[in-house]
Design a protein around this nucleic acid. Sequence first.
DNA 1: CTCTTGCTTCGAGTGCGCTCCAAGTCCGTA
DNA 2: TACGGACTTGGAGCGCACTCGAAGCAAGAG
Lengths: 156, 156
Amino acid sequence: MTVTETHTAEEATARDDCVADRRVLPPRPEGKDRYTISEVAACTGLSAHTLRWYERIGLMPHVDRSHTGQRRFTDRDLDWLQLVNRLRSTGMPVADMVRYAELVRAGEHTCGERLELFEATRRDVLRRIEELQETLTVLDYKIDIYANAQRASEGT
Amino acid sequence: MTVTETHTAEEATARDDCVADRRVLPPRPEGKDRYTISEVAACTGLSAHTLRWYERIGLMPHVDRSHTGQRRFTDRDLDWLQLVNRLRSTGMPVADMVRYAELVRAGEHTCGERLELFEATRRDVLRRIEELQETLTVLDYKIDIYANAQRASEGT
DNA sequence: CTCTTGCTTCGAGTGCGCTCCAAGTCCGTA
DNA sequence: TACGGACTTGGAGCGCACTCGAAGCAAGAG
């Protein structure tokens, strides 16, 4: 657990945008803070289509625009997408993530609700891990059977 | 690991229908071997519609019929559904399970392929567990932040 | 005999999460 | 000035995994 550390800084993070943990981010173009949609697509693995769709359904906090109306994503947006991607990979429905995004937009007074949401998600993730481990047992069992059947038919 | 045990019996299992592990099955109506679709629905958690659909797409081995044409599922069918349910819960696409069902129907000479399929699935499950663990770390991190933020605003 | 319940079939509909299209705008290079 | 390429929008379409509906048959209870 490397979780309890610089809490003065961390609380600021919690207060303004609830970004994901920087330590687990993939590399991103250096020294910039205004990314085009294709740059973001490349570094998040989401398609440009999907990014626009996320914005439409309210899963992205408001994205900056250039003077010609093109999207210019910030590092904060990338952090947000990083978190979304993680939650998505747990199977969290998009609607729930939208709900969380709304809470963030609604302001600081929703922090309690956000905490609950994360705790519920955490329980869910634990349950899924357990389920997968059970499945693993079944798979091992069957692999064992097939491997033995094969050895029996080849050998002897 | 409770996997290596009575292999004479287990090999017979591998040979004929590749059932799931009996030890993890939920209770089912006792002493019978011919279940109506609604009984099966009740004990698998799948809807009657879904069971018929599974049969249509080839995900069920041929199901017995009563003299009036109604489905009569056997214990073996229940075992099969048990396995299907487990694989489904890992996120395995239905198409892949159909592929496996086809291998089973094709006969014993496909056992090698089935073994490969299970091993691939196993790797997949391990990867997903890892992914979930990572997500768990992120969730813990954020829960920690929110919990601290809350304590800070309440206390003092 | 009628009623209810549960089954049969096939095809259409649903919800989710994208994914793509058409038509148009803007930018940088030659 | 012309061209290629990346961007914009709203809306339509897609693939998956169900889910439901309609119309009809069969069996048991009253």
